[in-house]
Design a protein around this nucleic acid. Structure first.
Lengths: 107, 107
DNA sequence: TTATTATATTGCAATATTACGATATAATAA
DNA sequence: TTATTATATCGTAATATTGCAATATAATAA
């Protein structure tokens, strides 16, 4: 079908899945890593940085923005995209808690 | 196209994307959370736990296994699936390092 | 006003994902 | 041997994702 039965899962499970889906493409990982690296972060830079056409990059940026992983601020003609620390810290927290729970399980 | 241009990205970027893709479905998040919760972890339990048919669950387990997030051990007629701490710790590390780098960026 | 520049949206083709019925396999039980 | 039980694979329909050319929009510059 291609349709997830998301109505049968908890809101937290769906939220996490949505976050991971936003990070499930190498271009979007590359965007995150680039934003982490540079201080200025105009979208044009990202287009030049990636081996993809401008509409494709714009689409990937949109998905990261929808997932609240990045946020964009209009800066004259350009748009300044940056990472959203809150969302990333939430994911970090999730994995930290997960690893803590991961004691003496089978295998 | 539906085809990622993965050949243009680094191996690390592709690996991370693959890991996140494996976790990008609520059913697979639910499986991870269930394995974290229980001590016994036979696949049949997982099928009963999820609102999905057995072939569908089997497919999700396969994807988690391919991504090295879980591992399966044959145990008589059943298969014992468990989390792979190494992979999960790798992801934890990645986010810990990411958050550390996330100092004084713009926005 | 008319460029120009930066980014977003539309439309579409190629491919991937999701879900499940039907069936296969593989191990033990009778 | 023939069930039975547990899990995997196949085939396929419905839907989603990816990528980009073409085009739209929106802001400044000339």
């Amino acid at each position: 079908m291609g349709v997830s039965k998301s109505e049968f899962f908890t809101e937290q499970q769906n939220q996490l899945a949505t976050l991971f889906k936003a990070m499930s493409h190498p271009a979007r990982i590359a965007i995150i890593q680039y934003l982490l690296q540079v201080d200025s972060c105009i979208c044009g830079d990202i287009v030049n940085e990636l081996p993809l056409a401008q509409p494709t990059v714009s689409q990937h940026l949109k998905e990261l923005k929808n997932a609240n992983i990045i946020k964009g601020t209009i800066e004259g003609t350009a748009i300044c995209y940056c990472l959203n620390p809150d969302t990333l810290k939430m994911i970090e927290d999730y994995f930290n808690r997960l690893i803590n729970q991961l004691q003496n399980k089978c295998c």
